[in-house]
Design a protein around this nucleic acid. Structure first.
Lengths: 220, 220
DNA sequence: CGGCTGGTTGAGGCATCTCAAACGCAGTGG
DNA sequence: CCACTGCGTTTGAGATGCCTCAACCAGCCG
């Protein structure tokens, strides 16, 4: 649907390998990008060097909105594995949006969803204990896969524990311990061999785990 | 500037008193809103009842973007004191945007800035200790006032410690202690009488306090 | 005055961080 | 083929920052 509308715009396709930057903070903003394949993170960096993963982006996600206001990007967008990006000049897109209101609606839709996702992340960060936060993270990941028609019972984290921890506001050891506990409770399973492949037999069980964590906390 | 462009659109004005909702999660989305006077918070509520303040909005801020994608709002917008809201039907705004690209640019500008602000909040939440987070919060508040041409050396928090704590991901006692420490360090001052009025003799000192907190943490 | 709400402060507990050791796996070079 | 190295992960033990619980205070209002 996105792609169909974009069929009438000049699109630049680009393949990025793991670790490559699509754009960096300070880069001049000219294009919006759509993830066509692969998986990307956005990283905010403070003046003093603190780094924070602020977003994870799968196929279909738009990247680059942060640059519109200031005409420069405010964060880095980095490929987590080999991926393909479709880029559209923002000025060309705006011109086309004026002729095609449906295209504008699609764009606003994506922006609105990104804001909603950020709010959800803040909610999780502020109100969930570490274990539940990890469970919630996995649930969101599995649901994102389902929405794209992919299997959600067998997921591959393309991030290190340190990156997951950074995104979730905790240390890598805490992530590791949380995953171990989830596995002990049979809410997730480790695939033999890889500690990066997880089995999620039942996505709803992750949600139940979150609720259970909260219930236990209030009981005491 | 916003207001000028809006002079050519049908605008509904509405005054809200402290505590009144502009919209609530689940409400049908029809309008975008601009804060013309007063001060608003947006509150995300999870299915299980967890509440989280996810945004604070001063004069000039847009509200309601979260409803575009789903055609229903995903959070509550609540007045923190008496305020006036200008509302514009989204469909009418879109129609006008197509005739006036500058209006569209203004809109995207606001959306882009909101995303950048959310990212900044996540960075603070995840990388700053409680005291520094409070200092950072006050700095942002003071800067927001400065941007609007208001005095930033004397600010009035229209929120309780509990609300500040909720927004910053900490408990009210922690906020209170952080403010006490900031006052002890002469980074802020309490106006005689109200604990709600703060003096910020030097906004830059707040930033310095944040950096100092981080430096001390790494030394040890 | 008395109750209520919001704020401050102290004491103790707990969740998470810090520090440290050990493991598995992949790549490299002898 | 087997050290050897480096990176990511796991797990334990102890430290600590924030939370919990509780007491008290100040302002406000009926």
């Amino acid at each position: 649907m996105l792609a169909l509308l974009e069929a009438e715009l000049p699109i630049t396709r680009r393949v990025l390998r793991a670790g490559e930057c699509l754009y960096q903070a300070g880069d001049r903003f000219e294009c919006l990008h759509v993830v066509h394949a692969g998986f990307f993170k956005t990283v905010e960096t403070a003046a003093d060097g603190r780094e924070q993963v602020v977003g994870l982006h799968f196929k279909g996600a738009w990247l680059g909105f942060d640059g519109i206001a200031e005409h420069h990007h405010g964060c880095d967008a980095v490929a987590m594995d080999t991926g393909e990006i479709w880029s559209i000049r923002y000025d060309a897109l705006m011109a086309r949006c004026i002729e095609r209101p449906a295209l504008l609606a699609t764009l606003h839709d994506a922006m609105s969803r990104e804001m909603a996702r950020d709010r959800g992340a803040m909610l999780a960060l502020c109100t969930l204990p570490a274990d539940a936060r990890v469970a919630d993270f996995l649930r969101n990941w599995a649901e994102a896969l389902e929405e794209r028609g992919l299997r959600s019972d067998q997921i591959t984290l393309r991030m290190t524990r340190a990156e997951i921890g950074n995104y979730l506001g905790m240390k890598l050891e805490t992530v590791s311990r949380a995953l171990s506990r989830l596995a002990r409770d049979k809410v997730i399973g480790f695939s033999q061999g890889g500690r990066r492949d997880l089995q999620i037999p039942d996505v709803a069980a992750l949600g139940a785990f979150v609720e259970r964590s909260l219930a236990e906390a209030t009981v005491h």
